[in-house]
Write a protein that binds this DNA or RNA. Sequence first.
RNA 1: GCGAAAGUGGCGGAAUUGGUAGACGCGCUGGCCUUAGGAGCCAGUGGGGCAACCCGUAAGAGUUCGAGUCUCUUCUUUCGCACCA
Length: 831
Amino acid sequence: MGHVRNYTIGDVLARFMRMQGLNVLQPMGWDAFGLPAENAAIANGVPPARWTRENIAYMKRQLQALGFALDWGRELATCDPQYYRWNQWLFLRMLERGIAYKKTGVVNWDPVDQTVLANEQVIDGRGWRTGALIEKREIPMYYLRITAYAEELLAALDGLTDWPERVRTMQANWIGRSEGCEVVFPYSDDTIATLGATAASAAGALSVFTTRADTLFGVTFAAISAEHPLAQAAASRDPQLLDFVEECRRGSTMEAAVATMEKRGMRTGLHVRHPLTGEPIEVWVANYVLMSYGSGAVMGVPAHDERDFEFAHRHGIALRTVIRPSGAEWDEVGPEWQGLYAEAGVTVNSGEFSGLSSAEAVTAICRALEQRGLGQPRVQWRLRDWGISRQRYWGCPIPLIHCPSCGEVPVPDAQLPVRLPEDLVPDGSGNPLAKSEAFLHCACPRCGQNARRETDTMDTFVDSSWYFLRFACTDQDSRPVDERAAYWLPVDQYIGGIEHAILHLLYSRFWTRVMRDMQLISLDEPFRRLLTQGMVLNQIYYRQAATGRPVYFNPADVETRVDGTGKRIGAVLVSDGLPVEHGGLGTMSKSKNNGVDPQSLVQKYGADTARLFVMFASPPEQTLEWSDEGVQGQFRFLRRLWKAVYDHVHAGPKPEPLTSAVLSGLGEAAADLRRQAHQTVVRVTDDIARRRVFNTAIAAVMELLNAVGRFEVPGAGARAVRQEALELAVLCLSPMVPHICHELWFALGHERALIEEPWPRPDPAALVQPTVELVVQVNGKLRGRVQVSALADEAAARAAALADPDVRRFVGNVEPRRVIYVPGKLVNIVV
RNA sequence: GCGAAAGUGGCGGAAUUGGUAGACGCGCUGGCCUUAGGAGCCAGUGGGGCAACCCGUAAGAGUUCGAGUCUCUUCUUUCGCACCA
């Protein structure tokens, strides 16, 4: 249903824009590689290719049944060699430019299946199939240098004014620019002696990054990640520390898991020297320090950092107050952590740097470090380079060949694509490509010797990072994109789930820039306007089985029980009439058995009802709660609309168009209906074009139809007004309800199909309102309403308000202290 | 843990720029029609009160003539956290 919602929003906008006279391209493609196909293959023993193509065929029928105005001539699937050859081609160009490079990365390793697992396949630190404790393992991988674009990706967010604010904020925080200071803590003599001639000792110093150089004199320990070379060196001499470092290797690589873990640490026995005081500082290994951020080491300031405070508390490490608040709310950091301790203030106990504001101290200390050669100002990014290697089968092969003599050799362009064999069936025990002799063996393109193909495939985010460009020229077979991209791109309206707010959208922004720098396209940003749609939710019902595992029931098979006021009091399974438990609302999923098949919905109510419901139930950016009654409500509305049109049509011949003579003779009721009809056009146009909300647009048409139902004035003029109101209702609804509106448009006596009609323009004369109702407040409380001329000035409005008997009761005989007049809205009398 | 949002009747939601809280729809109650209703039509429906009125937008404070809307604190829920896509 998430897809139905996504594409209905897109289709409504496409049809609306087309009626506005724009040339609209609405394409469709299939993001077809990835884990779900492999999982299905493991479960059913069928090659992922077959499962994928069957799914595409099924979904395509669904999308066609829903009447989406898609250009199927541009259909593409990311698992087609015609598409992924360009992933490979672009990857090779990135390799040439140094955008793609190789380094080691940490992955989840299942020691039983001897395979790399995705984060999703790690449940509570254990492998999903084996239940074995997962370990971190370092393997060589290919990375894309997205950090080289960090500055630009951040700065350009300001220009994305038609993106939701929250997405821009999330991306900015994700890129995470922080200005601070690199601080170098030289190793103590005893540490250098202990390390001997190792790689770690060659570094000679521990480098850390901090945004709080003003707290440097409060450093009482240093903490390094278990993967830090210094930790490795120390562990090789200390069996207990080695155990701890090994223990830190257990568990998944997920940052959320690392961050919520109990903070633990162990002494290394090594020391560094404070860069300004020379004081020895003990080095600890801590499980909360991430090797992937900064240098994998932090300075510990327990008095002014919450995590350091907690860590020091647990391990009996001393604490030194070096910042006091300027307002003197507290003096010394106490035994209980308070958020205030981390705030900026005035330095104390900091030698010659005491008495400075935090900001001054940051600058002064940084400068002092720089003079001693023990530090410098630095900008640190949270963003890391994008690791694209996957040790999996169902993805785009990385086009490299490993030759015993030449080393790593790129596949020549003429040999692209490196085709993925489509007949393999994964079994969960590693990448089947690595076991396929036919795939593996090849000749080295340089020396012709026997060589081995790279078996890693690309992250599926690669596939989705540029597909939108390809839609402009799916038939182009000598380049990934051609000049037609300049006409269609950037995407004027992109629609996607909020779950894509960071990764997919950031990767696409990056990839677009890389292609720009290769002179393949000439745009910076891929998506001009972004709509992030909310999730589709449904009720969850279950019973606790004897095994203790819940058994889920589809909400369609469950009947809810309500009391006399309509309040829910329980639910029973229709088949046996016995109660089921309610598990709240959740996203539609197989595991919770709360999905709704769009196909059955279309069969029962038709495509228009399905489309109307998903657009009416909530605004596009919010979650949408599935409701069978709600669907029936929309079905009912469409039938009422149908009946209203045909009742009108059967009551007489098609009226002549409204002439000025007819208009001037209209009674008040007819003028009111006409005003409402044209106001509906104004509201619907604004809702779709500017606000991108559809539920209120539909509500406006419902109100108009209710008004038509109440309108019982006889006569030719009134009949013409009713005809006009029904025509406008049908036009306004047509982007949401294309099929029924198409039919009703002919019924209303038109010869040309509705799809060829332009979007209606409201008649300014119809909108004119002779009088307006003003709300009258006394001291901010609603006390009355008065009708005044739409042209009334403040004095007239004030007089009318004070003349109202209800208002007079509250004002009494006192002279108002103040009167606030909001034209056309209200008068507030302050007494 | 960090980052981002959201919280309004029995339910989904409306209130667009600080200006009438509850549009529209669902559900429910009563009535009409019908052999029948998972059909249609009419009326009612935030809470309290005979009424005048009073209370009411997660909780608490603040700014303002006026706060669902702005500010702060707290609580709850949802999304993301780099190998689900």
